[in-house]
């Protein structure tokens, strides 16, 4: 006599297995959010995630380097000194708050992130930003 699993139990077994897989997949999902991926990328160039610091990112954002263009002496000239507040461009357009909790689609598109770091680092600092500065900044803003 051969052992045969009834079709019904196969179905139940499949559902149970899928049920086990759901939480695993959900965990994997949080682990690889677009923001995490971007942080990992910057961290890889600068000694790993542990080497990044949200506090340094906060200081970077709040600083007034005034070494770039005179119209933009600091990040806060346009973004205000609170990541939770909307800013304003010099031409009067509203800038969505920088904190991820306020603007959920921020720090998800690598091309867009690089475009704005390229422009704004040059405008505010008069130079390009390092991978560590970018990583610190995003770590700070995604924790807000």
């Amino acid at each position: 006599m051969t052992f045969r699993i009834p079709k019904c139990s196969t179905f139940i077994a499949a559902i149970m297995m899928a049920g086990c897989l759901v939480p695993v997949m959900a965990l994997a999902g949080t682990a690889s959010s677009p923001q995490k991926e971007i942080l990992t990328r910057y961290a890889a160039e600068t000694g790993g995630i542990a080497a990044l610091s949200a506090e340094r990112g906060r200081e970077f954002f709040m600083a007034r380097p005034a070494s770039g263009k005179s119209e933009t002496p600091s990040c806060t000239s346009c973004h205000t000194n609170s990541p939770f507040k909307a800013g304003q461009t010099r031409a009067g357009k509203t800038i969505a708050p920088m904190a991820l909790s306020k603007t959920s689609d921020r720090y998800a598109n690598p091309k867009k992130i690089e475009k704005w770091f390229r422009r704004n680092c040059k405008s505010v600092l008069g130079r390009i930003c390092s991978a560590r500065e970018k990583g610190d900044f995003i770590l700070f803003m995604t924790s807000q």
Partner: peptide, 8 residues
């Protein structure tokens, strides 16, 4: 671009 880097 009027005092800002707007390169694309």
């Amino acid at each position: 671009h009027f005092g800002e880097d707007a390169s694309i």
